[in-house]
């Protein structure tokens, strides 16, 4: 069972995760309007900006984050933004959505001008997240763990970051054992997604360059 302290940490992170989302009117634009390639690019860029703002608001609410050195806070957010964004957007393909919405979104991303070599690993990731059928709590904790990764570039006090990440990892490990008693490997599978995210992160800069070119 989770201790009282762990339950409080879990509630705090899940509440913050649910509270900070992409504004609904922006999310709606993705589904409702037709855009040419350039407008599509601008819309997806605005979405990315909004994702980062939402990510920062969520992160500010992770217990202890604001006690870290200010420049370390920025280094952590910079290092994890792309990964957290992929994680959050994977939700779109996990949740049950009204008929046709998933296809429409996929179509919009596929027609964004991003080249096929980057598209395939991205959709493979979305599929692998979808297969996990993560609970909201697991998604929120995994995002917090991604953000609190001590070995990001330019992080000075890695130990301080570890001290924040470890309790969140413990809660996630326990939660996985409680919610998936038949699947002892579930926690390891979740952590495996973090490795996949790192790979996507590495490809991301290259992907943006090719996207801008096209």
């Amino acid at each position: 069972e989770l201790t009282q302290e762990q339950q409080t940490l879990l509630n705090f992170i899940v509440d913050a995760y649910n509270k900070h989302r992409i504004p609904q009117d922006m999310a709606k634009k993705l589904l409702q309007e037709q855009f040419n390639t350039e407008e599509n690019f601008i819309l997806l860029t605005e979405m990315a900006t909004s994702h980062v703002q939402v990510l920062v608001e969520f992160t500010k609410n992770i217990p202890g984050f604001l006690t870290l050195d200010h420049e370390d806070q920025i280094a952590l957010l910079k290092g994890s933004a792309v990964e957290a964004m992929f994680l959050r957007s994977a939700q779109v393909f996990t949740r049950k959505m009204p008929q046709g919405h998933t296809e429409l979104l996929e179509e919009r991303i596929r027609r964004s001008g991003i080249s096929e070599e980057f598209m395939t690993p991205m959709f493979n990731f979305y599929k692998s997240i979808c297969n996990l059928q993560m609970m909201q709590e697991e998604q929120a904790l995994l995002t917090a763990i991604t953000i609190l990764t001590p070995d990001r570039p330019y992080v000075k006090d890695q130990r301080a970051v570890e001290r924040l990440q470890e309790p969140v990892l413990d809660v996630l490990r326990k939660l996985c054992a409680l919610q998936h008693p038949q699947e002892p490997q579930y926690f390891a599978r979740l952590l495996g997604r973090l490795t996949e995210l790192r790979t996507l992160n590495h490809h991301h800069a290259e992907m943006l360059t090719s996207w801008r070119m096209s």
Partner: peptide, 21 residues
């Protein structure tokens, strides 16, 4: 527009401000 800002600028601005207000 925000979309012209770099990632670090967006993070710094968001950390300083409070979007909830």
């Amino acid at each position: 527009p925000a979309s012209n800002l770099g990632l670090e600028d967006i993070i710094r601005k968001a950390l300083m401000g409070n979007l909830e207000d």
